[in-house]
Design a protein around this nucleic acid. Structure first.
Length: 473
DNA sequence: CATTTCGGGTGT
DNA sequence: ACACCCGAA
């Protein structure tokens, strides 16, 4: 019987792979927040730099480390003080703060700049603030016909500065590409990848000249392999994965290096099945994996072990949701409703600003408001494992409405979490302490849809803040 | 009870 | 609708 399926777990789903070979690229900005800060403060360029948020406690938490600083052993998730110990000359730049919380707008906008450039050549999916998938099959095919690799004359072209996985037969399996891609007998699909690599190299050059940012990229026939490849040679380099190299690449690849297997599922494979590498997975039949992990995940695992992945590049440049949250660790945890109310108000204001931007720039409105909170028990009571439930409701525009609605959601969650707690209106404004502490609050806006055309953004600007806004709800 | 703050996704 | 997971800076 199914051993693990009884546990609740998120399950990756396998999708069929298209018959025609695709050319997929994954582009990843190098230590992105650090680059953004180095562009803002040119005197930091070439110098060891890290980006920290909040520097009051042990110098703040590092969230991005420049490659100059990495040479000194500075690591992400170090504290500012630790980083200074490892690298006394390091420049620590703080994440901007707005409404008493970290504000990532600067980095979000910088990511959009890059995305706009990369989208010129094909279907573009913004996978995160600094990562993009591209489907450049069409552009690569066109180039193969018009300018096949055999005809490329200049060997020092930027387009040829790619690493090719599996090119060397001994030792380090990855070397600088030379004439390999131009050999007369190269397979059609390899030539397609070569053309894709040329295109990506040009795009990366465009990104550098137009934004000053360097990025790394992987070029392969699917998203999984492209993502794997983009991390193989950093910073500011690109890597090609020909089909012929897939088996050799995966055989000894630690299982947690594969996308979606970096967490619990990967750990489960290792401790329960002794699977340390993707190669180790090959010995399990598809039926066995389906039996162990369910049909979806079983199929997905079987295919993933073989480098097969049919996920399509979604043509999506804009986020599906916006969120604004803050944690209140240790002594900063919130004790009562009025403290929660204060922070809900701040977060609502930030969220409303994000929603305004989305209307103005993209003509989109969000329809769902969700509140998440985290908590821990104050007194060492019995059931300290209980989770604070999240709650949602229809999103009404306006910072006051969002704040009021979010506060209602908090109280609703509170009643579910602790039905006995007195929440009578009379007590609401009081500062009576919770029997536990709130360690985090987050508001998110989702179910984003296109604004009906009749509401052009100019009209919206006029309506903003006025009574008429409830028309959108 | 000190990474934090985002985003995207699936299972039920 | 809600719970929980993955991953990136």
């Amino acid at each position: 019987m199914c051993v693990f399926v009884l546990e609740k777990r998120r399950m990756p789903v396998a999708r069929p792979e298209p018959v025609e070979a695709r050319v997929i690229a994954h582009v990843d900005l190098d230590c992105f927040y650090a680059q953004v800060e180095q562009r803002r403060h040119p005197e930091l360029r070439g110098k060891p730099t890290a980006v920290v948020q909040y520097n009051s406690w042990k110098g703040g938490a590092l969230i991005a480390v420049s490659y100059e600083a990495r040479k000194f052993g500075v690591k992400r998730s170090m504290r500012g003080e630790e980083a200074r110990k490892a690298c006394p000359d390091i420049h620590l730049v703080q994440v901007p703060v707005a409404h008493d919380k970290a504000d990532l707008k600067l980095y979000r906008d910088a990511g959009s700049e890059v995305c706009a450039i990369l989208a010129r050549m094909g279907k573009c999916e913004r996978a995160s603030i600094d990562e993009v998938y591209l489907d450049i099959t069409e552009a690569a095919t066109a180039r193969l016909i018009q300018d096949p690799p055999q005809c490329w004359v200049s060997l020092d072209k930027e387009a040829l500065k790619s690493h090719v996985v599996g090119l060397a037969t001994d030792g380090d399996a990855t070397v600088e590409v030379g004439h390999w891609l131009q050999r007369k007998d190269a397979e059609q699909n390899d030539q397609l990848l070569a053309c894709g690599a040329a295109i990506i190299a040009e795009l990366r050059t465009a990104v550098l000249s137009e934004t000053q940012f360097t990025c790394s990229a992987g070029i392969a026939h699917n998203k999984m392999l492209a993502k794997l490849a983009s991390g193989m040679h950093k910073p500011a380099q690109q890597t090609i994965v020909p089909s012929s190299a897939v088996q050799g690449l995966l055989t000894d690849l630690p299982i947690n290096k594969i996308g979606q297997l970096g967490g619990k599922l990967g750990h489960l494979l290792e401790v329960e099945l002794g699977v340390k590498t993707a190669g180790d997975l090959l010995q399990f039949s598809e039926a066995k994996l389906q039996d162990l992990f369910g049909m979806n995940t079983g199929t997905w695992l079987w295919r993933t072990a073989r480098g097969i992945n049919g996920d399509e590049v979604q043509g999506r440049m804009l986020p599906k949701s916006h969120s604004s949250g803050k944690t209140f660790p240790g002594p900063k945890s919130l004790k009562d409703l009025s403290a929660v109310g204060h922070w809900v108000r701040e977060l609502a204001e930030v969220l409303q600003e994000r929603l305004d931007m989305d209307i103005e720039q993209n003509n989109r409105i969000a329809r769902l408001l969700t509140l998440h909170a985290g908590c821990h028990l104050h007194s060492s009571g019995a059931d300290h494992a209980r989770k604070f439930p999240s709650q949602s409701c229809a999103l009404r525009y306006g910072k006051e409405k969002i704040a009021d609605d979010a506060n209602r959601l908090f109280e609703k969650a509170l009643r579910k979490f602790c039905p006995t707690l007195n929440l009578s209106p009379r007590k609401k404004g009081s500062t009576a302490s919770f029997p536990w502490r709130v360690t985090g609050i987050s508001l998110s806006a989702s179910n984003i849809v296109a604004t009906p055309m009749v509401y052009s953004f100019n009209l919206l600007r006029c309506l903003k803040g006025s009574m008429v806004m409830f028309w959108f709800m």
